[in-house]
Design a protein around this nucleic acid. Structure first.
Lengths: 335, 335
DNA sequence: CCACAATATGTTTGCGCAAACATTCGTCAA
DNA sequence: TTGACGAATGTTTGCGCAAACATATTGTGG
């Protein structure tokens, strides 16, 4: 008798097809033997009843769910959407299904989400960055779930790690701008307290320009989430200061695009009056009137590697668990 | 004995705390009575063992999972990120956890995802738009899961529906442009085959301008996903045609921003040479050198309403199940 | 000081499935 | 003809939890 639990079960299908529940289970999963006759009868019965297997029960019986938990700081950012896309591709063959959580760049929230994911018995977990609360690390240590940390490699990974050195990307950019002859630098960014990768880039950038004989003359930052509008406002603020920089490094492309809009709207010549550089290399930059100098992060590739890793680990196989990719510096028209 | 199943169970905690499994269950869920002494002992034991409740088992025993499935066409689009944000807020109190799937604007994929979500026994489902395959509708009809369709209201909802009339938004915009004196119109869009809302806007726009004495002189469309870059390229294509429009309606803000970039880069005066209008009212428009005329869609509100609805339904309560919100026309500097 | 409620705990049961272990049947080589 | 093996199916069991149903153990008013 079909309970109010969400639909027919193997019991109902079995009765209708005149076979045992186990046979239904076998036909549905395609594992084990079944005669063509029985397969046909079971499938017909299942179709007639609108049977959908209960994976909750399947996961409980099989002791693990074909789920991977993915915890991202934000979804409004295309960067993470692209990581996700790569992950989906990397996972596609494996039957693993990604389940998302959004931490809002908050380690406490991340901890909550990790606990949640573990409680769903996920067979793999994707985390952003290498910084987590002690409790998060403890939980992960005591569970055997495979963990892949993505985006960043500057730190101590828990286990597998796929990303790039943000410090290096910023250092390269600083070097590039120094080589171009710029000496007086500014920085525009936001969400630095929470977006640790952006913080690492800022730090490396400042250190490199100073070490290279440049001068760091000022910055405009705040804690709001990054956006084009914010980039425009903060660039305005920075340029209003007594000492104007010759070149500005932005926390990311959105902010830099806002900076460019500020320049366009205020008649500043780029790069003669002010040079602009940023990080990510998102596609929308190509739509702007000037190509912004930036570093392209291998976002899709990162997701793909993480997906492959978790798929292999799920099959009990070992897999390449540390890959440092590099960001490609794109010299545009704004520097 | 802790099996290799992913950690300690209530059994282990119970033994360590010297109580029954049921008492552990009660302490963990906070339901039912428990003395302070026992609560403390159980929590200590749970902490010591790193116990994380197995919600798979809980869901099976309780006959339903505290999950809501959310199927969106894309995550790279801020629109959906904002809907998601509202949904999270609407769901926050309820203990329901959203699980996402991305359909890529493909109804077949949506069908697969719905099946998947149902197999996880979700207690609610959020779908985008009102168009689904027959099989999807059949599945939903035979399961008792609450369903909320969001974004669009132009059609026959399965059950609950929270969104806006895209036809009306486009009609309003057409009227607005007619009132402003424009008579020769063009359209730039993409992904129309799949993004049915965009298609509805286009159709209503064309009909309204023609009915209002205007002329529809041409359009540039293709099947790629929408992006600023694409908007720029397609605007170029449209403007290269023999008969140039006085005003262009874009499928959305990204495309329109691309159009604006085209104009800036090619020295076209906006709105004198060409007027631009679009749909969504995303924040990034405020960063652009000119405010683009657009309609603001109540994205967060839509998510919030859907979240509240599903939370109430999950508690067995009835809830407001149809809300048509309206898009606010924002008259910018590009028309 | 008892009756009865409120509180505090324990025991049994079953959710739906699949692993593990039977059992039946047919086929083919010896 | 037999028996041995694989193919095809059935039966039993338990995953971890929580609902349902006991059974103590307190406290409180009459």
């Amino acid at each position: 008798m079909t309970k109010k639990t969400g639909g027919p079960s193997t019991y109902d299908v079995a009765k209708l097809a005149g076979v045992s529940q186990m046979t239904v289970s076998r036909v549905m999963s395609g594992k084990g033997y079944a005669s063509e006759n029985v397969v046909a009868r079971v499938q017909e019965a299942a179709g007639k009843l609108g049977y959908v297997p209960n994976r909750i029960a399947g996961a409980l019986a099989g002791k693990k769910a074909a789920l991977v938990g993915v915890i991202l700081p934000a979804v409004s950012n295309v960067v993470f959407a692209e990581v996700l896309q790569g992950l989906n591709e990397g996972l596609a063959e494996s039957g693993l299904k990604p389940v998302f959580g959004v931490s809002g760049y908050d380690q406490q929230e991340e901890e909550r989400l990790v606990r949640d994911m573990l409680s769903w018995q996920v067979s793999g977990l994707v985390l952003t960055g290498l910084e987590h609360t002690a409790a998060t690390r403890a939980m992960l240590a005591s569970h055997s779930t495979a963990v892949a940390e993505v985006i960043d490699v500057d730190g101590e990974p828990i286990a597998a790690c796929f990303g790039l050195s943000h410090a290096k990307a910023a250092t390269d950019m600083a070097q590039h701008l120094l080589t171009k002859g710029y000496r007086r630098f500014g920085y525009v960014g936001c969400n630095l307290e929470r977006d640790l990768r952006a913080g690492k880039r800022r730090k490396a950038f400042v250190e490199t320009v100073v070490a290279g004989g440049g001068e760091f003359v000022g910055e405009a930052c705040d804690d709001a989430p990054s956006s084009m509008l914010h980039g425009r406002v903060l660039t305005d603020r920075l340029m209003a200061a007594a000492e104007r920089p010759e070149a500005i490094y932005f926390s990311n492309d959105d902010m830099a695009a806002g900076g460019l809009m500020y320049c366009l709207a205020n008649g500043l010549r780029v790069p003669d009056d002010i040079a602009l550089a940023s990080f990510n290399g998102l596609e929308f930059l190509e739509a702007l009137p000037l190509q912004i100098t930036t570093s392209r992060s291998p976002r899709r590739k990162i997701g793909l590697l993480a997906g492959h890793y978790l798929a292999l680990r799920n099959d009990g196989k070992d897999a390449l668990d540390k890959v440092e990719l590099s960001a490609e510096l794109i010299s545009g028209q704004t520097s």
